[in-house]
Simulated assay, not measured.
Amino acid sequence: MAPAEAVIFDGPILATAAAPIERDRRVAVHEASHAVVAVAVGGRVVSVTIDGQPRATHAGGLPRLDGVVITMAGPLGEGVLHHRSVYRPPDTEVAIWSDAARRCAVSGQCDDCRIAIFLAASTPDGGAFVATYRRAEDRTLALLDQPHIRSAIREVAAELLTHGTLTGDAVHQIAARHGVA
């Protein structure tokens, strides 16, 4: 990707010069968390990017709950590693997502929407939805609490800030260096 153009004002002369793309550390940590947790649960990362539409892509074939854990890893990893705090919604809020997903009132590709759609498709009612959500949330936080997973996320995020996009092989190499497999 070509560097962005920056406009430089120098007295009466207007000139342009190449400037590096400003990348957001929060987004890098979010996407790196998806990618590293995918490796930790046995998934195969295809690529991860913070340029354009940020996304971590992994090959399918994992159990549905692992997909929910991977999806939760983005916002929870962002909270744990970037903000140093985690928002855990109350059960009443989670139950609202269940109802919305079952009425097809949830759409889009945001992490919360994807979680609601995954869980609504695999749970019989709101109570099971909330219980399964909490199981996935606890598992995700337990993974993010492991120092070797956190250090792999930090390295993937740093590489994303430098390069913008990483191949799945690069993510797997970084994860392996940190003992995540």
Rank of each mutant, 00 (worst) to 15 (best):
P124V: 09
A158F: 01
L141V: 04
E22G: 14
A73C: 06
P89W: 00
R114P: 05
A175R: 08
H30W: 10
T16E: 12
T140W: 03
R102K: 13
S85Q: 08
V39P: 02
A152Q: 08
C113I: 01
E5F: 03
D169N: 09
R139E: 13
I96P: 00
D91I: 00
A105D: 12
P75F: 05
A116Y: 05
G60T: 02
A40S: 13
H172S: 07
V68C: 03
I21T: 15
I70W: 04
R135L: 13
I21V: 15
V106Q: 08
H82E: 13
P12G: 13
R139H: 12
A15Q: 11
A131R: 15
A18R: 10
H163T: 09
R64L: 12
A6T: 05
L160T: 04
G61A: 06
V41M: 09
I8L: 08
A170E: 11
S98T: 03
E137T: 04
A136F: 03
V94L: 05
G108T: 04
A38W: 02
A38K: 02
T167V: 00
V7L: 11
G168Y: 02
R102F: 00
R150P: 00
T49H: 10
S107Q: 13
M72C: 05
G126D: 13
T165S: 13
Q109C: 08
T132M: 15
A131M: 07
A35Q: 07
T49Q: 11
I153Q: 07
R154C: 03
I50E: 13
G52H: 11
D112T: 14
D51F: 10
A128L: 10
H178M: 04
G179V: 09
L143Q: 08
R26T: 08
P89G: 00
R135G: 01
L119K: 10
A35P: 06
T57S: 12
G168N: 08
A152W: 02
I115M: 14
L143A: 05
G52I: 11
R84G: 02
L160E: 09
G61M: 03
G11T: 07
A157Q: 07
R134F: 01
Y87D: 07
P3N: 08
G67V: 01
L14A: 02
R177S: 12
A28E: 08
Q53A: 14
A17Q: 10
A18M: 09
S98R: 06
T16V: 08
P89E: 03
S85L: 01
A100Q: 09
S107N: 11
V48Y: 04
G108A: 07
V156Y: 01
G43M: 04
R23C: 11
H172A: 10
L119Y: 04
E137A: 08
D138W: 05
Q53E: 15
R135D: 13
L141D: 06
A181L: 09
V36E: 06
R135T: 14
S47T: 07
A157R: 03
D91S: 12
V80H: 02
G127K: 15
R134T: 11
A4L: 07
V86R: 02
T132A: 15
V130F: 02
G127Q: 15
A40K: 11
V48M: 05
T123K: 12
H148K: 14
G179I: 07
A142H: 10
T123M: 05
A128R: 15
V80Y: 02
T162F: 10
D99H: 10
V130S: 09
